[in-house]
Computed example of a mutant assay.
Amino acid sequence: MRWLKENALALAFLVMFLLAVGGQAVAGLLQFNDTQLAEGGEPISFFRYVASSSFAVDVAENWQSEYLQFFLFIMLTVWLVQKGSPESKRPGREGAESDEEQQIGRHAEAGSPAWARVGGLRLWLFSNSLGLVMGGVFVLSWLAQSVAGQAAYNSERLGDLRDPVSWWSYVTSAEFWNRSLQNWQSELLAVLSMVALSIYLRQRGSPESKPVGAPHSATGVEG
């Protein structure tokens, strides 16, 4: 029970994620089969659908936009600040900060991770590991979207008796960028809303909000 309590936030989002992916798969299958029947085709099974390029591209295009959002937010908040937002560092603390502030090298504490105590490449990798992983997942998701999207796009073209296109032609097409940008703009708007609205609005008890009584100008303060 203690383990569940200490990991409740991650577990809650994991359960919601699995339910959402399962729901998307079921709804997508129903929509796909409805289109198949309307066009005189045969419906397909659930397992064939979730292994299809049609399902893969829908999942990958959402994943890459989400990880782009977090990658940009993680990296930009190193150097950029927003006065009054709990999502920002305090003005004047822009940058990677000193070794003492980051508790690395000789400033490491008893409970600090082992790689925080060393220097060289290992320290650099650990110091930038969150951004590297988020950026890496974005790139991989983008590539997965492009490959699955090309396959789905060519399937539609072949159904219309048109020639398939190459990967390069697909990733430079309006089809690909329309799918990508419609997700990017919504993610960037969500981050902008969180950064700006948290200056003036509060949610009692949430670490994403300032304390209810904190001044609007308070920056980098969590409730």
Rank of each mutant, 00 (worst) to 15 (best):
H107S: 11
Q150N: 13
G120I: 02
E61L: 04
L68S: 03
L76S: 15
S54D: 11
W79D: 03
S146A: 15
I74C: 02
G159A: 15
S173M: 07
G92Q: 03
L192I: 09
E6C: 00
L140Q: 02
E208Y: 15
L14E: 11
A196R: 08
R93M: 13
S88Q: 01
L68V: 01
S98R: 06
L201S: 01
N183W: 13
S65E: 03
E100K: 15
S45R: 02
V171E: 08
S141Q: 11
I199G: 00
L188G: 01
A144R: 03
W177F: 08
L181M: 14
Y200G: 13
M16G: 15
I44P: 09
T35E: 14
E39K: 14
E61P: 00
Q145C: 03
W177E: 03
H107I: 10
M194L: 15
A144M: 10
A174C: 00
E175G: 00
G28V: 03
D99C: 04
S180A: 08
V78C: 00
T35H: 10
L161P: 00
E109R: 15
K83M: 09
G149R: 02
S85V: 05
E187F: 11
R179C: 00
E187W: 10
Y153P: 07
F17D: 07
Q31M: 11
Q103N: 06
N33M: 08
V133Q: 07
V57N: 12
S112N: 09
W63T: 09
G205E: 06
V137G: 08
L125D: 03
S186H: 00
A25C: 10
A12H: 04
P215T: 07
G28D: 06
G220N: 12
Q203N: 13
S180K: 04
A214C: 08
W115E: 12
L192T: 11
S85D: 05
L19A: 15
I74N: 08
Q150L: 12
A114T: 13
F70Y: 10
T172L: 09
L14C: 10
G131Q: 02
L76N: 05
M75E: 13
S141P: 01
R2M: 01
E6V: 00
L201E: 01
L37W: 05
W177N: 05
D58M: 14
F70C: 00
R93Y: 12
P164T: 06
Q182M: 12
F13Y: 13
P207C: 01
A116E: 11
A8I: 11
G92P: 06
S180F: 12
A56R: 04
E94G: 04
S146H: 08
